[in-house]
Simulated assay, not measured.
Amino acid sequence: MGSTVGSFRTPEGVTLGVEHFGDAAAPLVLLVGGTTMLSWPDSLCEALARGGRRVVRYDLRDVGASTSVDPGNPAYTLRDLAADAAALARGLDERPAHLAGIGVSGMVAQVAALDHPESFAALTLVGTRPVAPGPVDDDLPDHDAEMMQRRFALPMPDWSDRAAVEFAAAAAELRGDDPGTARATAERIFDRAPSTEPGVQPANQLNLVFAGLDCTPRWRERLPELRIPTLVVHGRRDRFFPVGNGEALAREIPTARLLVLEQAATAIPDAAADEVAAAMLAL
């Protein structure tokens, strides 16, 4: 199934890189990049499109084909990223969209659904948690300590060299994801990065935007306000955001259903794409 790449300019003047799958007249499923659009596998986008949805995945600011200014020092906030999602949804379809976030972009999706309820009719949260990057609440499981120690022991590569994608494969294996798939995705991310300037590739490959992003105020206590159909998807083997985080989201969002992928970690494996798509289409 083919796709079309393009861009969308928000009312605030931010350009977002986008890719479209499926019938442009079909109900919209908007996939927030986590941080690049390639965090959403082609297999899932295609399965959703076959299920009668218009699927649009997009890059967050400072990565991929979106506006990039200073990835290491974002002058915008989590609320601004949430507003981008709402503006994109309204710009693509007058009907409320099904919004989905994965990993750190699941935080964007939660805030967008809370702050812009008129823009969204359903919500999918994949491999994420109900608090911002940094110290977690006492009842939430933090990153696996051994995994993080081994991850930070990996020598940082020269990101001007395409061979640096081996770092992404090694880090993915530590997280429990398939290194071959991660390597192929990292190669695509490398080739889509807007320049070879220092800092650009690490921002695209390592989600560094969230290291300096203002994510205040907290939103976890507002989750019971969500009344739209919600799917929480989490990999049983996720060592970065352990599954207890997804379980907490499913408990605190009144309309949520939890889908645990027993053989998955942080990424959605191609083998699980049809199962995840079916659950999303059922919302």
Rank of each mutant, 00 (worst) to 15 (best):
D84C: 04
L28D: 07
A163K: 10
F240Q: 07
V260C: 09
L223S: 11
T4Q: 15
D93M: 12
E12H: 12
A171K: 07
Y58C: 03
R162W: 03
G103N: 13
N245L: 11
G176L: 06
A203M: 07
M148R: 14
V55T: 02
N245E: 08
E94T: 15
S195T: 13
L154V: 02
M37F: 05
V126W: 02
M148D: 09
I189A: 01
L281I: 05
A75L: 09
P41W: 01
I228W: 10
V108M: 11
L174I: 13
F120R: 06
R218A: 15
A169D: 04
L206N: 05
V233G: 04
M147I: 13
M280Y: 08
A112W: 07
V69S: 09
N204G: 05
V63I: 05
R54Y: 06
L60E: 01
R220I: 11
D84W: 02
V32Q: 05
G13R: 14
V69C: 03
V209L: 14
T216L: 14
L99D: 03
A87N: 14
A75N: 03
E46S: 12
H98V: 08
R218H: 13
R151G: 00
M107Y: 01
D93T: 11
P198N: 08
P74Y: 00
L92A: 13
F240S: 09
A186H: 03
V18R: 01
A170T: 02
E247Y: 08
R150G: 04
E118M: 06
A122N: 02
L31T: 02
R129P: 04
E118Y: 01
L258K: 13
D93H: 15
M1E: 07
T230E: 09
Y58S: 03
H20I: 07
R151L: 15
E225G: 13
Q201M: 15
A256P: 12
L31M: 12
L154W: 04
S66H: 00
A89K: 03
E46K: 07
A182R: 00
V104M: 15
V63Q: 01
D115H: 11
V233M: 12
A121L: 12
H143N: 14
A113N: 12
S68M: 12
F241P: 00
E275L: 13
G51M: 08
R50Q: 15
A211K: 03
F190P: 02
D62R: 00
D84H: 06
G72M: 00
A65I: 00
T77I: 06
V55D: 01
G180R: 08
L226W: 07
